[in-house]
C-alpha cells in the first residue's frame, strides 16, 4: 500500500471546544462561513418526569471533521477539470487552484463538506493538512492546538495498528466506499454497544 497520511481523533474525549476550528481558520485566513475543520455536534435523548424527579437518557458528542484525504476520494472522481488530485508521496488530496473552475461538484459529493467555495476568487478550497507545517516537521495547526490532545496525525497503517480501524461513528454518512484516512476512538454514545 502506498503512503497515506491521516488524522487521528480520540473522539470520546473531545469537548467540542473549537480550538482546532479557530486555529485552522486563523492559519488559513478563512472568512466567515468557511472552516476547513468544523465541530459537528450530535445530541439526543429525552427526559421522563415522575412526580418531582427527573430521569434522563440524554446523549451528546462532537466530531471534529476536516477533509479526511480519503484513499478513494469521491471528489477526485467528480472533478471535471481534474483540479483535485491525490499526491503519491503522502496520499494528500489537494486542489490545484489554477485548474479549479469552482463548480462545487466536489462539495456536493463529499460526505464531510470538506471542499468549500471561496467567493473571493471563485475557487474551491479545503484542508491541505497544513503541508507547509508538515514540511517544517511540525504538526498541522489543528493538531497542535487541541487542548485535550485528542487530535493527532500519522501514517494511516500505523495509526490503525495503534488505535484500531474505526473510521465511522453514528451520525456520519456511510463512507465505507471512499475509505477516509482517519482513525476514530469513538465516544461511548457514538457506537452501538
Amino acid at each position: 500500500m502506498s503512503k497515506q497520511i491521516a488524522f487521528y481523533v480520540e473522539q470520546k474525549h473531545c469537548t467540542g471546544c473549537s480550538a482546532c476550528q479557530i486555529a485552522c481558520k486563523d492559519k488559513h485566513n478563512l472568512p466567515l462561513g468557511q472552516n476547513f475543520r468544523q465541530i459537528h455536534a450530535y445530541e439526543g435523548g429525552d427526559f421522563t418526569i415522575s412526580g418531582n424527579v427527573v430521569y434522563q437518557n440524554t446523549y451528546a458528542y462532537w466530531i471534529p471533521v476536516s477533509c479526511n484525504h480519503c484513499v478513494d476520494a469521491s471528489c477526485i472522481a467528480v472533478c471535471p477539470s481534474k483540479a483535485i488530485f491525490k499526491r503519491q508521496e503522502d496520499g494528500l488530496v489537494l486542489i490545484n487552484e489554477k485548474s479549479c473552475i469552482g463548480c462545487r461538484r466536489c462539495f456536493a459529493v463529499c460526505p464531510y463538506q470538506a471542499p468549500q467555495f471561496d467567493a473571493a476568487n471563485g475557487k474551491m478550497k479545503k484542508c491541505d493538512f497544513c503541508q507547509d507545517l508538515l514540511q517544517q516537521g511540525t504538526a498541522p495547526a489543528c493538531v497542535s492546538a487541541c487542548p485535550m490532545r485528542v487530535l493527532g496525525y500519522g501514517e494511516l497503517s500505523e495509526l490503525q495498528k495503534k488505535y484500531g480501524d474505526t473510521s465511522w461513528v453514528k451520525g456520519l454518512p456511510n463512507t465505507a466506499k471512499i475509505k477516509p484516512a482517519w482513525v476514530l476512538v469513538p465516544h461511548r454514545d457514538a457506537v452501538d454497544v
Binding site: 471546544c17 481558520k25 492546538a145 487541541c146
Partner: peptide, 8 residues
C-alpha cells in the same frame, strides 16, 4: 495551549 478565545 490556548483555547479558541485567544486564538481568535
Amino acid at each position: 495551549r490556548g483555547c479558541l478565545r485567544c486564538r481568535a
